[in-house]
């Protein structure tokens, strides 16, 4: 597949949050402020790219040759969980400033289904090469960031709006997300 197509498709057409419903928990959880959404995006990008690279290599050089693809789920989640720990430790030592910015988001990432989802999709039926898989992971992270930042911007404005009492808080956030997803569906036309 064309690299350019992979990028466009992952960011806009098949946006990971708004079309594939992966990573909805952090999408709802940390999108109240624009600033925190950037932090979360940074941490997710970091882990998603590294995790997909590692799991891609494991899948193609360990699981497939030994015929133990059924171990995929357990191996992948363990890789992601250990990676998150590792990234946390390394970041603390190497760049305290970056750790300060991303630190609190890292533990949340283990249970972010976007990371595991992308790792599984990258070795899935699309038959990516290593470079394509890495690009796919990065593009999905950008898509995640785009959805999160847009949504956080909307929610910041919503705080000032006059919302019916029953709808205030979570319900109106979901409805807004629905409208955002509807807007993203418009991108399907360009594919």
């Amino acid at each position: 597949m064309d690299i350019f197509l992979i990028v466009i498709s992952a960011i806009f057409v098949n946006n990971i949050v708004l079309a594939k419903f992966l990573g909805v928990c952090p999408f709802m959880g940390v999108s109240t402020k624009l600033e925190t959404s950037f932090g979360m995006t940074g941490a997710v990008t970091f882990v998603m790219v590294i995790a997909t690279t590692v799991t891609f290599l494991i899948q193609n050089y360990i699981l497939v040759p030994f015929g133990i693809e059924f171990m995929q789920t357990i191996i992948f989640i363990l890789v992601i969980a250990s990676l998150v720990q590792l990234v946390e430790i390394v970041l603390k030592k190497v760049s305290p400033a970056l750790y300060q910015a991303l630190g609190i988001f890292l533990p949340l990432i283990t249970t972010n289904c976007a990371v595991l989802g992308v790792a599984i999709l990258a070795v899935g039926p699309a038959d990516f090469s290593l470079i394509e898989a890495v690009v796919y992971a990065a593009a999905n992270a950008v898509g995640f960031g785009l959805a999160l930042a847009t949504f956080a911007g909307l929610r910041e404005h919503m705080e000032l709006a006059n919302i019916p009492k029953g709808m205030a808080g979570i319900p109106i956030a979901f409805v807004t997300a629905g409208l955002l997803a509807l807007a993203f569906m418009g991108f399907a036309g360009i594919a």
Binding site: L18, A19, F21, M167, I170, P171, I172, A173, F174, V175, A177, G178, L179, A181, L182, F184, M185
Partner: peptide
């Protein structure tokens, strides 16, 4: 996809 968000909301 949008219907999921709208419905749950």
């Amino acid at each position: 996809a949008p219907g999921g968000f709208l419905g749950l909301g």
